[in-house]
Nucleic acid binder design. Structure first.
Lengths: 217, 217, 217, 217
DNA sequence: CATGAATGAGCGTTCATTCAT
DNA sequence: GATGAATGAACGCTCATTCAT
């Protein structure tokens, strides 16, 4: 059996060594954005966090905006590659959806700062409204939509629901859960064990089987 | 048959008349926040939009922050009252959930600026993380959770899923759809007719019956 | 006998009283620009010199550039009005030219800071190259050119020289002398008495009668 | 008959070959200063224009200031040598003055960038006020003054005018004309032919013979 | 000689907030 | 209540200069 795709999402790696200043700046930016938000983050904070001189940030990046854009594009790109691999894989539709759900819901544990930035600063600022960013985020929806459409074609999934709307609901549900995690609100019954796993189970049961009680019981 | 709860959400009303300066400032604030975001909105912009001197804003509100908070609390409170009435009503569980979904999904049409502010500036800034705001938003989840729990008790809904998680998924799905509307991305098959209604139908089918194709039917 | 036009150029007036902040800022700007040059002048220097708060400068002027432009336009306009009155007056051509020469050469005594700014920051920065500023300065040449052309028509002045070139030479000569004054280089034989008057006499003798020794003497 | 001194002013020469980095930097500096002004010119712009790494500029020059100073001294020195040769030559006074006028007025054609820098960045910044630069520029005045004084002694020129003031006027007139050229304002009647030659003729007629119409002719 | 990464002081500008009228 | 002049802390950005390689 192959490794779970979740495992491909790298853990917070060792900090970039001296000499790879550009990486250090990006990593510092994520930490500071996570801590104070984009607007609250001063460029000088980021430089201090990265342990480099103020002006060097402007050697590597045009301005503060480009820092956030770059963080977004590079990390999001890496994330999408994993999603694409899930989509292209051989698993049945339900398994693919479960893998995506797990990938997203486990992400916070692995890269909490990056997920915070994603949740609070990217999906949610008006600056996000710019077409390019929308398109980039849209690629996640496209990937999930491909899973759903394939499932509809094979007959695994019902065909009377619009795939795009289903995707919106699915990703929205996951987003909501991850936001709840970030805010520290997720108080799960099973918190002793594994809250994330419970969340994955719930979302899959819900989306696959629905809420309604089945006659048999 | 009683009026749909959706109809209780007021349409963009006539602007407050001269003399009711406080109302005019709040309405102006919503428009400016919607247009430029909270950070991009200058107090002077809001005053200009309201047609008053900008020092006057500080007569009615302690500071810019309080403007956003007040907007949030007053409008959100009105919204919650409708939700609470749905919760307390006599309809079956499925109908209550449908009513909530419709209320949320139709809101953008009725109060686009307010919904934009809600979507971009409130659920999503790090400032939102403050406990009080979380609690306020949490009231929506509590209301929906009460519907779900009641349904589980009556046997209408299955009991093996945690009500809180179900709520998160449900509200998240709706949030995702409304965001998609705000961004102008919702391209529905049925766009000639009523995209919102189609969204409501999909989300209800999905959450009640699930995605899986049913063998027999 | 009427007052000399030179006398119309106001002496450094009393500083603008409190309350006329805009004027105070402009006057302070001239002093600071004269002392440190446009680039060397910090906005905070100007505010301090004017005795007002930093940000107030931006209440009255869009930015530092607009300060220099405003200084230039307002003062230069006042100067041109005097020149225009000389042009329109009844004096013979030679007297008009002498009046202009005196106006310019005496200006430094009356408004040394303003003349310094004019000499170093306006006629001479590349930013001056912008069409609008050129046109404004050009109005001085136009005024002098009108005197010359009128003199050529009445037969007072020779007609074989292009009026525009004559103007350039005339104004250039005066500019050179005033610059020399500003730099503190003018070491005149008559320095005990009135160097400026001697400069006026020389420039008029030169331009009217030429350098060549006349046979008769 | 000897070559005109004007011809000694070298045309824009071939760019310095690779390897003569110092020369290339100076030439690049002149071009960039001409294009953007001293303050607008970044050291990196100059290095890019010269095709070298910008750290190298600091091998050859102490700092940006020294670049301008060096440009000024070297080129100005070459220019002064020509002037000195005119002064020392055997021509009559009037011819010497005409030669100086021609040298200056034709310079823009031969070295437009250098003349732009001279006009806008050297005679005219407050930094120019430093004694050393004043002295250097003063050497031009001294040279012209020697011509004038010699003419007064031989009786060619009238003696009732102060030689220094005459020089100021003469050089100022030429400066004004050349500035007008640089700004693209010189609109001469004879523009089809040779505007510069017409300027030389006018300035000489003016300074030698004066503006006044002569009765007899 | 040559490179360009690294440094950091310095400055223009914004804008929320206060307050005299 | 109403106005908008006045205040000043805060921060992004530039760019001359240094220095390790």
């Amino acid at each position: 059996m192959s490794r779970s795709p979740v495992a491909e999402l790298p853990m917070k790696a060792d900090p970039a060594p001296r000499g790879r200043k550009r990486e250090r700046i990006l990593e510092a930016a994520i930490r500071v954005f996570a801590r104070r938000g984009y607007h609250g983050a001063r460029v000088s904070d980021i430089a201090a966090e990265a342990g480099i001189a103020y002006g060097l940030v402007y050697h590597y990046f045009k301005n503060k905006d480009e820092l956030l854009d770059t963080v977004f594009e590079e990390r999001w790109g890496a994330f999408l590659e994993i999603v694409d691999r899930i989509v292209a894989g051989p698993s049945p539709t339900a398994e693919k959806l479960r893998a995506v759900a797990a990938l997203i819901l486990f992400a916070y544990r692995r890269q909490p700062d990056w997920v915070k930035v994603l949740v609070f600063e990217i999906g949610r600022t008006s600056r996000f409204s710019e077409p390019e960013q929308i398109r980039t985020v849209g690629r996640l929806f496209q990937a999930v939509a491909r899973i759903v459409r394939a499932g509809q074609e094979t007959g695994e999934l019902r065909r009377d629901l619009d795939a795009e709307l289903v995707c919106l609901a699915f990703v929205g549900a996951l987003d909501s859960m991850i936001t709840s995690q970030v805010l520290g609100l997720m108080q799960l019954p099973d918190s002793a064990g594994d809250a994330d796993a419970e969340a994955v189970r719930t979302v899959m049961e819900l989306f696959l089987g629905g809420l309604l009680a089945r006659g048999g019981s």
